[in-house]
Amino acid sequence: MSEVSSIISAGQRVVGNVSAAEDLVVVGRIEGRIQSEASVTIEAQAVVEGDIHARQVLVKGVVVGEIAATDGIEIAPSGQVLGDLKTRRLALRAGGRVAGLAQSGIEVPAFVYGNRTAVRRAAPAPTFAAAPADPWPRTEEVVETTPRASQPQHDHRKGKKEPSREST
């Protein structure tokens, strides 16, 4: 199933939050938050009204909301962002528009989908080979997420009922 990535097509409108553990392409409209472990691509005619938190974000359309990406954000020439950007590596192509606070070279914690647990380890020290070293080496990286071994899922809908104290 991974030949075709998930896609919200042009004639579609999603009102609500989207969370994913695989690549997502948005061509339609999303009014809500997008959280992904993988990449999110906002195509040219897409409009996203809400925050995006993913590993990699490529914006070719319109995003109104904050974008936080663990690896990188790229704003293509047709991309427009009204909101803050927070990521490790930021690429703003000539023509792209950003109105907000852009911070790059910072660590953004990764999103973990559903009931998966993340395996984290300290990132390897950079080797000073011919390739230029990353000026902002990451301190920790999320290696992989795996479904949590079967644990009883915490059903947060069943809240504890407090005994009602009514003063008579």
Binding site: S6, S9, G11, Q12, R13, N17, A20
Partner: peptide, 17 residues
């Protein structure tokens, strides 16, 4: 075009279109 919601995608809300 079709909207494809992959096996590891969760949408909490309405889909219309």
């Amino acid at each position: 075009q079709e909207t494809i919601i992959g096996a590891q995608v969760t949408i909490e809300g309405d889909i219309s279109g």
